[in-house]
């Protein structure tokens, strides 16, 4: 079986890369973790390199057999999981280093915004074996505290010293917790606030809000309407497409919020609405979530349909439970 190497460069608005990869006897799987079957990019990589393409939604493959994972991640989860496992990752959506696992997403293992034209055959010379790209994974330790604890280990610590070291350690924990928080705010929270404010600004000022009011409000201000939304969003073909990064749930949440603020939807419907707009939560992430739980391929093959079907039942039930719990709210 002759394998060839391919070079994958980032798309126009993409980030990271270029990656040069080549399958080996044991590690030759192109794992396509994108909603709706195997995407063209994975297919092309497999055809060019001679590797084997597998639909990550149908089944899962042990990590050491995966040559490259192709995802269409919105920026929260999937794009970080595979780099953390030190697997080459290609993201079809042009997302940079983002999400809670951004620390593991480095140019030598992750590339985004990739289209078919960004993939080309190359000679064997420049092949990067995946082990060589050791992701600089651990969050940068604070040198002063690490140096402090090493130096004092040598002689028997007296009381004062151990108190000092203990206090230093605790302060170090608080300090790194603060750094982690600010990093999370800048990387995840502020970008979404910018996007949401732009959306609300345009909706309120341009009058589109009234059109949405006539379209969204009648559904989300009555229980049958909310139940209808929850059933539609839970349809097994739709839910994996509505799931990524919970963007749809957040946009609809904002729209419903604007309508509640304008009085078109009674405030006590906020609780059932929270469940009606979200029966699809995580439906795009099932195979990856199960692989994080070290599930067998058979479990994934049964788990994906089982959860999608269960949501058709539990989506509407969650709206009913929330409606019952909303009495006396406001």
């Amino acid at each position: 079986m002759s394998y060839n190497a391919v070079k994958i460069t980032r798309g126009s608005s993409g980030w990271g890369g270029p990656l040069v990869i080549k399958p080996t006897e044991t590690r030759n799987v192109v794992l396509s973790v994108t909603g709706g079957g195997i995407d063209p990019v994975s297919q092309k990589i497999a055809d060019l390199t001679g590797g084997r393409v597998v639909d990550g939604f149908a089944t899962s493959v042990p990590d050491d057999q995966i040559m490259v994972a192709v995802v269409d991640c919105g920026g929260t989860a999937r794009c970080g999981v595979y780099p953390k496992k030190k697997i080459f990752t290609i993201n079809l959506t042009p997302v940079g280093k983002s999400g809670p696992l951004a620390a593991f997403m480095n140019e030598d293992i992750y590339v985004s915004g990739v289209k078919e034209l960004n993939i080309e055959l190359v000679g064997d010379g420049e092949v990067l074996s995946s082990k060589a790209s050791e992701a600089k994974a651990e969050t940068p330790k604070d040198e002063t505290y690490v140096a402090l604890s090493k130096r004092t280990q040598t002689k028997k610590p007296n009381i004062l010293e151990s108190i000092g070291r203990g206090a230093g350690k605790v302060v170090g924990v608080f300090y790194s917790a603060g750094k982690e928080t600010i990093d999370m705010i800048i990387r995840n929270v502020l970008p979404f606030m910018a996007f949401v404010s732009m959306l609300i600004g345009i909706i309120l000022k341009s009058g589109i809000g009234n059109i949405i009011a006539d379209w969204v409000a009648p559904f989300s201000s009555t229980i049958p309407g909310l139940l209808l939304i929850s059933v539609v969003a839970a349809i097994p073909i739709l839910s994996p497409l509505l799931g990524p990064g919970a963007v749809i749930a957040q946009v609809v949440g904002v729209l419903v919020g604007v309508e509640i603020g304008k009085g078109n939807i009674p405030p006590q419907y906020a609780l059932p609405a929270l469940f009606a707009i979200n029966p699809q939560v995580g439906c795009d992430f099932i195979p990856v979530g199960l692989s994080l739980a070290e599930a067998e391929p058979e479990t994934v093959e049964i788990g994906v349909p089982a959860i999608l079907i269960s949501r058709l039942v539990t989506g509407p039930i969650s709206v009913v439970i929330a409606y019952l719990a909303s009495f006396g709210l406001y």
């Binding site: 920026g75 809670p100 957040q250 419903v256 603020g261 009085g263 405030p267 906020a270 929270l274 979200n278």
Partner: peptide
Amino acid sequence: HANAGELFVYLGIANGITTL
């Protein structure tokens, strides 16, 4: 903190409640 990347599912609707 548990899901800082997807706060607006709740915050979107909560915003409407605070405007009231």
